[in-house]
């Protein structure tokens, strides 16, 4: 069984936010307005935050998305099992099961679970730009980064129809695919020959707030020498 993981090299990352837009378009995240953004209702599954990291002169810009913990604090507290850790290590959110209690959003130390405060809306002319592979979440449920799980489903199907195994390049989340600085590497952590496994066990690798015991599968590579 694969264990999907993502490595973000902070030394390479320029903070250009291409990943943020890629995620927004790929996953049908509705647009905000100044008013909604002002009260924390920006719909983003990945965003740039200023994090104080040891050894850096000023706060680093850190692309922050669901850390896909192996011990997720959010799944334990869900009263309806609407969020759970799937066998491949992706923390999934099942929208039709979610009652919108927002306990998981509060339990998450990374604050990366997003709540649909209102019904998502697109102007009429923009209706077509939504990705038909991904649902538009209704109001009142929590949503989050899924490592573009729909891409995995599609890739696996293509591979099976073609009668071959899933190749590493078949499945890449939108953010990783777009990253112009080539700062993101995605793959199977359980495969010792994969790039992610090598990078994740390298000397620069760290997991953010790992002292909380969350065991994230998003691994950052430290900036600096």
């Amino acid at each position: 069984m694969s264990r999907w993981g993502l490595v973000i090299d902070l030394d390479r990352c320029t903070g250009c936010q291409a990943c943020v837009v890629a995620c927004k378009h790929e996953n049908n995240l509705p647009f905000s307005t100044p008013e909604t953004a002002d009260v924390g209702r920006l719909m983003t599954w990945i965003q740039l935050v200023a994090a104080d990291l040891p050894g850096r002169p000023m706060p680093s810009s850190l692309p922050l998305m669901c850390q896909q913990c192996d011990r997720p604090p959010c799944t334990d507290v869900c009263p309806t099992s609407a969020t759970y850790l799937n066998p491949e290590g992706i923390v999934a959110q099942i929208y039709p099961r979610c009652i919108g209690c927002r306990y998981c959003t509060n339990a998450c130390p990374y604050a990366v679970k997003i709540f649909n405060w209102t019904e998502p809306e697109w102007p009429e002319s923009m209706a077509g730009m939504r990705n038909p592979d991904v649902s538009a979440r209704p109001k009142g449920v929590v949503e989050k980064c899924t490592f573009c799980h729909h891409r995995l489903i599609a890739a696996r199907e293509r591979a099976r129809v073609a009668g071959r195994e899933l190749a590493p390049e078949d499945y890449v989340p939108a953010c990783v695919q777009i990253c112009p600085a080539e700062a993101m590497t995605f793959g199977d952590l359980s495969d010792p020959h994969s790039d992610v496994a090598a990078l994740a066990s390298g000397p620069r690798a760290f997991r953010w707030m790992e002292e909380l015991g969350t065991q994230p599968k998003v691994v950052y590579l430290r900036e600096g020498e």
Binding site: F31, L42, T44
Partner: peptide
């Protein structure tokens, strides 16, 4: 989508 990126990572989008 670009307006949401303004002022990041300082937390002042839009």
């Amino acid at each position: 989508a670009l307006f949401e990126l303004l002022g990041q990572p300082d937390g002042v989008p839009w």
